[in-house]
Amino acid sequence: MNTTTENSPDRENAWQNAVTLSPADVTAIVIGRNEGERLIRCLRSLLPQVGQVIYVDSGSTDGSAIRATELGAQVVQLDMSGPFTAARARNAGLARLTEAEFVQFVDGDCEVEPGWIATALTALAGDSQLAVVAGRRRERHPEASIYNRLCDAEWNTPVGPARAVGGDLLARRAALESVGGYDPGLIAGEEPEMCLRLARAGWSIRRLDAPMTLHDAAMTRLGQWSRRTRRAGHAFAEVSWRHRTGPEGFWQRETRRALIWAVALPLAILLGLLVTPWTGALLLAYPLQVARMALRDPDPKDRWPRAFYTMLGKFPEARGVLEFHLRRLLGRRSELIEYK
């Protein structure tokens, strides 16, 4: 039972620490490429909340670097002679840090909510083992497409201790440095992979019940959604392979599900049809699984489309899994998968 009282030394110290923290203790690292007005909106939302903003530009041709400088951000031009990854860009920003104790990472297509930095700092100040906090990322235009709404639902993760968070997060600099930052070789899934290494090092990660960022997915076509889902499959496969001997079984279930539904079951049906036409009845597994997921979804809004696209998404996910392992066996480097 928790016996901490309102006047306990731990609670009082945490409150005092939170009070002494200020925006100067935080440096924001924004990464982007050709984000246009979304980047400007992102930087303007951050500048009043943090001590410094570092913008890492990855070969933009729309004048993003110039406009970021005009707004007061320190600009880092990522060396594009090597393969681009978001992890490389984030590490390049980390390398420019000076005295900041905390780091806010933001993707350039996101706007940071007012008050988020103060909320996150208070949480970190109250727990010395807490390495990373994230809040609620929302989609800016969910009405624009079902694909935007699928993103919004995906980001609605449980509040409290978390296994991993996404690209927008506020972190303790010492924790990041203790694990060597992001893995620059990953083309996707670099944030959860880093969170896994943080947890192994004894740090904790937490999702706060607070608005954090508004994201502009600008995803209106099936092909965009398919590429994004394919990238997720690639991330599942690569991260689970790298940590395949770990006790966590990190992303192994997600990888298996994609292969079962999009590779193993279709192959079983095709081979079975050579023996008996009754094997075609196995196709009913797909609508039955869609119905099962929809009926178990506690949010009635879009529950059937969410279930349908979750099942449909196993196919591009499986493609991403197979692409990773094929390239791995051939000794080839994975290429970036972009949906914008």
Rank of each mutant, 00 (worst) to 15 (best):
T4F: 07
T4K: 11
N7H: 11
N7R: 10
P9E: 12
R11H: 10
E12K: 09
E12Y: 01
N13V: 05
A18W: 08
A18V: 09
S22G: 15
S22L: 01
S22T: 15
P23H: 08
D25N: 11
T27A: 15
I29P: 05
I29E: 08
N34P: 01
G36V: 02
G36R: 15
I40W: 03
C42D: 06
L43Q: 03
L46V: 13
P48C: 05
V53T: 14
V53K: 11
Y55Q: 04
Y55A: 03
T61Y: 01
I66L: 13
R67D: 13
R67P: 01
A68M: 11
T69D: 13
E70A: 07
E70Y: 02
V76Y: 06
Q77M: 10
M80P: 03
M80N: 13
G82D: 10
G82C: 10
P83I: 06
F84K: 11
A87W: 08
A92Y: 08
G93L: 03
L94A: 11
L94F: 00
E101A: 12
D107L: 00
D107P: 05
C110K: 05
A118M: 08
A123T: 11
G126I: 02
G126E: 10
D127C: 11
S128Q: 13
V132R: 09
V133E: 07
V133H: 09
R140D: 09
P142T: 12
S145R: 05
R149C: 04
C151R: 14
A153F: 07
T157G: 02
V159P: 08
G160Y: 10
R163S: 10
V165R: 06
V165N: 00
V165P: 00
G167C: 08
A171L: 12
R172V: 03
L176Y: 07
S178A: 14
L186Q: 08
M194E: 10
M194F: 06
C195N: 15
R197Q: 09
R200V: 01
A201M: 06
G202F: 09
R207V: 14
L208C: 10
M212V: 02
L214Y: 12
A218H: 08
T220Q: 11
R221G: 01
L222Y: 14
G223V: 06
Q224R: 08
S226E: 10
S226T: 12
S226L: 06
R227S: 02
T229G: 11
R231K: 14
A232L: 13
S240R: 01
R242M: 09
T245S: 15
P247V: 03
P247E: 13
Q252H: 14
T255H: 10
R256A: 15
V263A: 15
P266W: 06
P266I: 03
L267H: 04
A268P: 03
L271G: 15
L271P: 04
G272D: 11
T276D: 15
P277I: 01
P277V: 03
L283C: 08
L284A: 15
A291H: 09
M293Q: 07
L295I: 04
R296M: 02
R296I: 00
P298H: 12
P298W: 05
R303V: 04
R303A: 06
W304A: 02
R306K: 12
Y309R: 04
K314W: 02
E317T: 05
E323W: 00
R328Q: 14
L329V: 04
L330M: 12
R332Y: 01
R333F: 00
E335M: 09
I337S: 04
